[in-house]
């Protein structure tokens, strides 16, 4: 079934530049200082990357990132072992590292294919925009008060944990409110590295513990829709979507939240 997308196609291919860039750096260092140096650089980069993935796990509690961390760590160890034993017969430890790397790589690909380690911001925006019609550009930097709910603090905090774990949104938990920032694949490093203390310029939905819900769509995200959508309806729809999600979570039907996101039908490369 072909689904009409409201967002412009994702043309950010940064994810493919990382392995290509790494290969290029390894080859360049290898050509200049010899193959062991090239492997050592590759090992160092993989190890650093594993630290980033580990940080992602710490911030989101998404267990998939343990697998990613282990893959990158084992790839780093493979590269280091090749650097140390260059020109020698492969030793048993090196083969164990290669086996671990291949095992975790296969697992990681499976997780990526099943969207377990995919940031869901794009799906969230598609769902929010699904019923919103085209209108004159009515963008404003002001958030929209969406309405009032009777969710308890525990429900909101529980959903915040769920949203983080399933990469639906980065959460900012305050003394009297929780803000959910849906993050699109490729935009997450700034949030993971803690470079975004202030979320108010982003797209967000905020639940305060008195039950008030407000929503905001950032100008960047708004301009990423193919058409100028009715801005107030888009904000309302985004807020309603999260209210629905918290409702489903409250009723113990959190799997339906993931079903709705999966139903958008984005491929792993979109």
């Amino acid at each position: 079934m072909y689904t009409l997308r409201k967002l412009k196609p994702n043309r950010t291919y940064g994810w493919i530049l990382v392995p290509i860039g790494l290969m290029a750096v390894m080859l360049a260092v290898g050509a200049l200082f010899g193959a062991p140096a090239g492997f050592a650089v590759g090992g160092a980069v993989f190890t650093l990357y594993s630290a980033y993935s580990c940080l992602t796990f710490v911030r989101t509690a998404n267990a998939g990132f343990i697998v990613v961390t282990l893959f990158q760590l084992s790839a780093g160890l493979v590269a280091f072992s090749w650097a140390l034993a260059y020109g020698q017969r492969p030793n048993r430890l090196g083969l164990v590292f290669v086996a671990c790397m291949l095992f975790f790589m296969a697992w990681m690909v499976l997780l990526a294919a099943t969207k377990k380690i995919r940031w869901r911001g794009r799906e969230v925006l598609e769902l929010a925009a699904a019923e919103v019609e085209q209108a004159q550009n009515g963008y404003t930097g002001r958030p929209l008060p969406v309405g009032k709910t009777d969710f308890t603090q525990d429900h909101i905090l529980g959903f915040a944990e769920f949203a983080r774990r399933h990469l639906i949104a980065i959460t900012y938990v305050g003394r009297d409110r929780v803000a959910f920032v849906p993050v699109r694949e490729g935009n997450e490093p700034a949030f993971i590295l803690g470079l975004k203390d202030d979320y108010t310029d982003e797209t967000w939905v905020c639940f305060d513990f008195a039950g008030n819900v407000s929503a905001n769509v950032s100008q960047r995200d708004y301009l990423d829709f193919r058409e100028a959508l009715s801005f107030d309806k888009l904000c309302q729809s985004l807020g309603d979507l999260f209210v629905e999600f918290v409702g489903l979570f409250q009723r113990g039907e959190s799997v339906r939240i993931l079903d709705r996101l999966d139903a958008v039908g984005l491929s792993m490369f979109e």
Partner: peptide
């Protein structure tokens, strides 16, 4: 008040209604 002011393409509201809201 400004937090509840209707968006540019939304239906306008009377100032009194926005105050109540």
């Amino acid at each position: 008040f400004l937090y509840h002011l209707p968006f540019p393409n939304a239906e306008p509201l009377a100032i009194g209604d926005i105050l109540r809201k």
